[in-house]
Design a protein around this nucleic acid. Sequence first.
DNA 1: TTGAAATTGATAACCCGTCTCAAAAAGAAT
DNA 2: ATTCTTTTTGAGACGGGTTATCAATTTCAA
Lengths: 143, 143
Amino acid sequence: MSKHAKEMEILKEHLGKHQLKFTRQRELILDAFLKQEHITAEEMYHQLARKDPHLGLATIYRTLNLFCEAGLAQARHFGTQTQYDNVSHKGHHDHLICTGCGKIVEFENCDIERLQEEVASRNGFTIQTHRLELYGLCSRCRH
Amino acid sequence: MSKHAKEMEILKEHLGKHQLKFTRQRELILDAFLKQEHITAEEMYHQLARKDPHLGLATIYRTLNLFCEAGLAQARHFGTQTQYDNVSHKGHHDHLICTGCGKIVEFENCDIERLQEEVASRNGFTIQTHRLELYGLCSRCRH
DNA sequence: TTGAAATTGATAACCCGTCTCAAAAAGAAT
DNA sequence: ATTCTTTTTGAGACGGGTTATCAATTTCAA
């Protein structure tokens, strides 16, 4: 039995609800995906290149998008590529980024997160994750 | 004299520092850019199609990227396109993004912005701009 | 005015991601 | 197990957005 039983169950439930089929490829890709915090389709393609049923790039894209619909993954456009984030992975933090020297300070703020939930539910959304980046000048660069 | 004198000055300073030249095209593009809150290269291309020195799409891309380096713009990858945000524009808005169907809802929340300021000043930062994206499922995709 | 260096515009090239379609696999009903 | 319908797969074609190429033009310092 896989160590990703819970997520596998979520996937199977989603498949059942949408007349989709459980395949060896989807199982393989989910296993590989859940080992990462985030990954691109291209990276996963190389990672799984030598697995038993050979996985086509199209299948990887399709499957990662399927995971997004099932709520297991989250697509994030980063530079030119799309990052697929593992939603089950917690420990999220936000960033203060100095535009002068590039310094990055991590922070967490519960009040902000609570307000985010409010905004989301007011719009009918259920938040899976978020990205908050504050850009500015640190005390040193301001002078 | 242009009404965007301050930004024009920032641009000229950046150009000077990097041995770049001030051209009619850069001036035109900056003027058009500053009138918007955010814009894509393609949109700007159509907007400026009939201006006096005809502007090539490549020039628009190059110039908007230049503005990013000068700190006047901020690139944001949105779906397949890149949005160039006007950093000087206040009343910044944030985004709720559905990971299922890609729907995007814009919102503004002063309380969140105030808390951001607090976090920043506690860390000695002066915020220039920020990016807040909430990812989740909209009401339709949740079912 | 001159000349070196940067810029421009047209378009080719590029990259990422999606679409197409015939062959294979899944899964329900025999 | 066998059949049959439906979905999935993989290879490659395709498409949209962005960047690279390069000859002609413009900038600007000397």
